[in-house]
């Protein structure tokens, strides 16, 4: 495991016990909690929150799946069970604002929870990073220089088309003074990594190619040094793709939170 944290991550339970309220709840998500690669991003998001002095907390073991993969797979019962249970926890803690480390959690809590009684201001971690840059709280200095490095950004479907968030992640990259190169299919026309709609959890149907290979070929056409992601599922699909293409020595797949942490030397 790389880059352990040198500070405690506060949980809601602890905060409440101390009689405190966080400004923002960090919703980690299942991938961010259990997937080893995504855990790195999770810790990096915490480092950013800790660094800027934002009063935050996580749910820890009280967090549970938002129900997104169940809903996309057609199990509305299971989705609503998960949603209502989570809403009960969130409302119990009087949560107002949430930042998520995953576009799927972001979409589900932001759009599908209000109808079930969960109303929160929800942002994705790339939006938080952009806001912190805009406010001058985060600068791209003190760490690794990305100046002039070729970075291509892959739009996650549930952040881009799903919720029209195209600019925040790009602004976070522009702050690095890097060379941002777009793939042929980007923004509204971005190609899925192949993981959405519960595909992450199953083998693909018969075809002539895997979707992540189609996508990674396009990404590699831009001859990037870094492929930037902002979704743990895209991260898996893109990293696998780069490995399949034997390019993992030359091209890194990094989450925008990781890039930000490196640029700031956190």
């Amino acid at each position: 495991m790389s880059a352990q944290l040198n500070f405690e991550v506060p949980t809601m339970a602890e905060m409440i016990a101390k009689g405190e309220e966080p400004e923002i709840l960090f919703w980690v998500g299942c991938a961010g909690s259990y997937d080893e690669r995504a855990q790195k991003t999770t810790r990096d998001i915490c480092k950013i929150l800790h660094h800027v002095g934002l009063k935050y907390a996580v749910l820890g073991t009280e967090e549970s799946c938002t129900g997104d993969p169940a809903k996309r797979a057609g199990n509305e019962f299971l989705f609503q069970m998960q949603a209502m249970t989570n809403i009960e926890v969130l409302n119990g803690y009087n949560i107002k604002k949430i930042v998520t480390g995953c576009p799927h959690c972001f979409n589900t809590i932001k759009n599908e929870y209000p109808g079930l009684g969960g109303n929160y201001e929800v942002i994705h971690h790339t939006q938080l990073i952009q806001q912190l840059i805009d406010e001058g709280k985060l600068k791209a200095e003190g760490g690794e220089s990305f100046k002039g490095k070729k970075i291509t950004y892959h739009d996650p479907c549930y952040l881009g088309r799903g919720n029209d968030v195209y600019e925040a992640p790009r602004k976070a990259l522009e702050a690095l003074d890097a060379q941002l190169v777009e793939m042929k299919r980007c923004k509204t026309n971005g190609l899925c990594c192949g993981a959405g709609g519960a595909q992450m959890f199953k083998e693909p149907e018969k075809g002539n190619k895997d979707i992540n290979i189609e996508r990674i070929e396009e990404a590699l056409e831009t001859q990037p040094q870094i492929i930037a992601a902002s979704c743990p599922f895209c991260m898996t699909m893109l990293s696998d793709g780069v490995k399949m293409k034997d390019q993992d020595q030359n091209v890194k797949v990094l989450d925008i939170a990781e890039i930000t942490v490196r640029a700031n030397g956190l």
């Binding site: 405690e8 909690s33 259990y34 993969p69």
Partner: peptide
Amino acid sequence: APWKYSPADRFNWA
């Protein structure tokens, strides 16, 4: 969680 992990391990990342 969509994977077979124990809820008790959910916070192990920290």
